[in-house]
Amino acid sequence: MRGYEAGGTRRWGPWPVAYVVVVGVLTAGGVLLNLLLSFAAVFATDDCGIHHPAPLHCTGGGLLLMWGLPWLGLVWAAAAALAVAARRRGFRPWCGLPLGALVYAGGLVLVWQVVVA
């Protein structure tokens, strides 16, 4: 059987270096996007004031959600992509990239819901 040594013990191959490099590059891109989003989140509070009722993004908790969810989503996305790679070696780890992208996009969707709430 492929992947097994004599005696039925499982033999793990080396980490796919290209996959880890791609996850690192995508994570670095996510860091740059999160920095841009954090800068834009500052301006989301421009409509806060005495003339408008306090929407969620004007509260302290809303601000923390706007600034924290993209970073939390990025950490979860990188962890999900690497967890799939740790579980499945060979060609199959590449399935972790779409999973990581969906997790990261989910965090951004939650941030958008806070901004428009």
Rank of each mutant, 00 (worst) to 15 (best):
V42S: 14
G106P: 07
Y104P: 01
A77D: 02
L65R: 10
A83N: 00
L36F: 15
L37R: 11
V109Y: 14
A105N: 09
V114L: 06
A86Q: 08
L33H: 12
G60D: 08
Q113W: 14
A81I: 00
L33V: 13
A81F: 00
A54L: 15
L72N: 09
R92I: 03
V109H: 10
L72C: 13
D47P: 12
L97A: 01
A83S: 07
V21P: 03
A78G: 04
H51S: 14
L69P: 01
G73A: 14
R2G: 00
V116M: 05
L110F: 13
G8D: 06
P53H: 04
G8V: 01
H52G: 05
A83W: 04
V22W: 04
L36H: 15
S38F: 09
G60K: 00
G30V: 03
L36D: 15
R92N: 04
P98F: 05
V84I: 13
A77K: 02
L26P: 06
W67N: 08
C58K: 07
G106K: 05
F43V: 11
F91I: 01
P53Y: 01
A101S: 10
V17R: 13
Y4W: 14
R2C: 03
Q113V: 09
C48Q: 08
T9V: 08
R88V: 02
P16R: 13
W112K: 10
G68E: 10
W94Y: 05
G13L: 12
V22A: 12
A85W: 00
C58M: 06
E5V: 14
R88I: 00
L82S: 00
W15L: 08
P16F: 01
